[in-house]
Design a protein around this nucleic acid. Structure first.
Lengths: 142, 142
DNA sequence: CTACAATCTCTAGCGACTAGAGGTTCAAGA
DNA sequence: TCTTGAACCTCTAGTCGCTAGAGATTGTAG
């Protein structure tokens, strides 16, 4: 196992600049280099990077991943902190789903109301200009 | 009607720096100024800003809002372009909801599996290290 | 040995703001 | 009228997690 950054990129499906970025922010340890200063990775790096990628795919932010990685080096500690992070993340996902469901129904309503005529009569533009016409209170979504 | 930026901010519930930012990117026209170069807004500005705020709350990006605003000045045009934007946005919201639902069930599963023991036995950390243990394929969510 | 793909470092950009520094203006109370 | 201090001004930089590009160097297959 002595992989170039491109090899690792293909294996783990993480782009080359992203791998360098993870090194830069200290998520992935700096690997050894060739004489010509090119990075060469081993199995440890690959598995750590897939851990990172998986956690990112699950929507955890870099700070959370740092915490997970640090925990995983202390097998005797309680896993409670990891638990906590997952729970908080789940809660925020659920809040987001709730918001997006409201938003979806609002957007559907706008489309149903649209008469497909000239802008003058367009409910979409009207609703945007007058929040009172919305059926829900909706806070910021994005 | 001759409102300071702070007055407008309170009325429309958009922060002061955000109002200036909207002016800078050309979403909100530059208002007249006092002798001392402070901004003074009229009713037009207030209603345009609430339009913008409402659209942002509904998750439209600045480009979409630009399009809406430009349409709203052409009342005889067909509202089809607005329709299209809303539809595309709705579709992306629905895709996101679907992803987040998958994600939610994955996170719940992780929490259920957690034995609340030491990290060594922690399913959370294990699952992150081995995507094969996931029940769904989940792509990037964030 | 040559060609050229892959790598290197460095800086800047994305979107939609937000924060802060350091200076000026407005308006209310004395 | 003067003073105080909150609100305003401009400008730059930071947020997050990358992504893009320039310009130089290295590795490797033929």
């Amino acid at each position: 196992m002595d992989l170039s950054i491109g090899d690792v990129s293909r294996r783990v499906a993480v782009k080359v600049p992203t791998i360098r970025y993870y090194e830069q922010i200290g998520l992935l340890p700096a690997p050894p280099r060739t004489e010509g200063r090119q990075r060469r990775y081993g199995a440890e790096h690959v598995s750590r990077l897939s851990f990172i990628r998986h956690a990112r795919d699950l929507g955890f932010d870099v700070e959370a991943i740092r915490e997970f990685l640090s925990l995983s080096t202390q097998p005797d500690q309680s896993c409670h902190p990891a638990d906590e992070i997952v729970l908080r993340h789940l809660e925020s996902v659920e809040r987001r789903i709730a918001q997006l469901n409201l938003l979806r129904s609002e957007l559907r309503h706008m489309l149903e109301e649209c008469r497909h005529g000239p802008v003058r009569e367009c409910q979409i533009i009207q609703v945007l200009g007058d929040h009172g016409q919305c059926r829900h209170e909706h806070g910021k979504v994005v």
